[in-house]
Design a binder for these strands. Sequence first.
DNA 1: TAAGTTTATTGCAATATTACGATAAATAAG
DNA 2: CTTATTTATCGTAATATTGCAATAAACTTA
Lengths: 110, 110
Amino acid sequence: MGVTKSEKFSEEQNQIANISKAFAHPARVAILQQLFKMDTCICGDLVAEIGLAQPTISQHLKELKNLGLIKGNVEGTSVCYCINKEVWETFKELFTAFLNQDLNSKNQCC
Amino acid sequence: MGVTKSEKFSEEQNQIANISKAFAHPARVAILQQLFKMDTCICGDLVAEIGLAQPTISQHLKELKNLGLIKGNVEGTSVCYCINKEVWETFKELFTAFLNQDLNSKNQCC
DNA sequence: TAAGTTTATTGCAATATTACGATAAATAAG
DNA sequence: CTTATTTATCGTAATATTGCAATAAACTTA
C-alpha cells in the first residue's frame, strides 16, 4: 500500500502522470517560468528569486533534470540551468492531446 | 517542514500546481480519459475498468470532484460522473498558456 | 420490513514528498 | 595552500499520498 500501481495503467497514462508530478509543485512551476523568462540562464539566482532554502531548490532542480525537462551546465563555481527544448516540446504535445480530448456530446447525465 | 509553502508563490503558480496534482496519478488520468471516451457517463464501471479497489477509485473521484473537474449525479443506487466542461476549459487555457511560453532565443548556455 | 446493490467514509499501514540544517565537493581567488 | 563561493548530498522531521479492508449510508426491490 501507499505505492502507485503503475503496472495497471498504460504507458501514456503513466507518462502524463509523471510529467504532471513535475508541475505539481509551485516551486517547480516558478523555476520553469524563470528559465523561460530570463534571457540568460540562471543558477543560484533561483534561490534568491524563489524564497526557499538552497538545498530545497537544488532538490527541485534535480527532479526536473531527472525528468529531462531541464539541462545543467557548470560554469566555474556556479551552475547554469536551461529548458531542454526538445523534451519540453514532446511533453507539450502529449499534454496538449490530453487536454484537447473531445467530449462526446451525448455525455449528459450531469 | 514537509508542507508546501504556497504563500511564496503566485496565484497562477499555485493553480497550475494544483491542477497538475489532479493529473499526477495514472488512475485519475485513466478516469478522466474514460469520462471523455464513454458516450454514457460511467459510475462503478470505473472500478471494473481500472483495476483498483472500489474505495480507492471512490477516493480518486472525490479529489477530482473537489477540484471541480468532474460532476457527480446520483441515479438510484449508482452515481454517474461526468467531466465539468466549463472547469476543464478554464484549466486547459491556463495550462496551454504555461506549456506555450516562448523561449528567449538568447537563452543558450546549455 | 428485509435483503441486495452501489457508493462513500473510516481507519490504518506503507510509501512519497517537502523542507532545511549540516556538510561535502568543486572551483576560483588570493 | 588557504579561503571564499557556489552547488550537491546526506540525514532527518513533518506532512501528504496511495491503497484497501471494514463498514456505513442510501437506495431498490421483494
